[in-house]
């Protein structure tokens, strides 16, 4: 992990988490924030380690995962630009509960526990943004529990694709590259099962694979 110079207030102003801070608060914060570049597959957070910082994603994507003793993994979420992670341990003083690994080269901002807590106490808007972030993650987690407990692998793969899809020229398209192995880890199934399900969805006209992206047909949109 390489460290870069300090950051400017202009950069911080563009971070959604800090949107409610004034110029004065941003300049104080800028002095305590560090910018970091990490390569692909870098371990940013390791489950079980003590908690000392909050991280904000400037660019790149990362996966949040838990694993068992046999090394089997489940991906809890995939994070991208503007999102933050590591706040849970800062709020409840517990060790890291999951690991965070970069999926591609990433640029991150880090803020220490002390600085984060001071800013939270001084700025209600920041607390609200953190709360909204926690609620968003909790809703995602609840939906995931619902689909793991109530849906078969077909339903779970379809739901995941729907959630990842963006509107492109009036179509729902999954443009972010995601491997079958990562899909498997997100839906709690084997890679082979996911391959089979994706092939079936393709043959039955629910999805169309175009190079790296996956277009969703209206059939799959109605099936939900």
């Amino acid at each position: 992990m390489s460290q870069l110079a300090k950051v400017s207030t202009a950069l911080l102003r563009n971070v959604p988490l800090f949107a409610g801070l004034d110029e004065q608060q941003l300049s104080v914060l800028a002095r305590s924030i560090v910018r970091k570049n990490v390569g692909r597959n870098a371990k940013i957070i390791v489950a079980g380690e003590p908690t000392d910082s909050l991280y904000i994603v400037l660019y790149g994507r990362l996966k949040v995962l838990m694993s068992d003793e046999q090394g089997r993994e489940v991906i809890l979420s995939i994070l991208g630009p503007g999102e933050f992670f590591g706040e849970m341990g800062l709020l409840d003083d517990s060790p890291r509960s999951a690991s965070v690994v970069s999926l591609e080269a990433c640029e991150l901002l880090t803020i220490s526990k002390t600085d984060f807590k001071r800013n939270l106490a001084e700025n209600f808007e920041l607390s609200l943004t953190v709360m909204r972030g926690l609620v968003k993650r909790l809703r995602e987690a609840d939906r995931k529990i619902g689909s793991l407990a109530l849906m078969d692998v077909y339903g779970r793969v379809a739901r995941l694709l729907l959630e990842m899809a963006e509107d492109v020229d009036g179509e729902k398209v999954v443009v972010k590259k995601i491997s079958k192995k990562d899909i498997a880890k997100m839906v709690g199934a084997s890679r082979e099962m996911v391959s089979r399900v994706m092939k079936d969805l393709q043959l039955s006209g629910h999805i169309e694979v175009r190079g790296r992206s996956i277009a969703l047909r209206s059939k799959i949109l109605l099936a939900d």
Partner: peptide, 16 residues
């Protein structure tokens, strides 16, 4: 945070 940790554990056990 407590609810989120519980939910994550539940996801882990459902999947693994």
């Amino acid at each position: 945070v407590k609810r989120l940790r519980d939910a994550d554990k539940q996801i882990g056990s459902l999947a693994l």
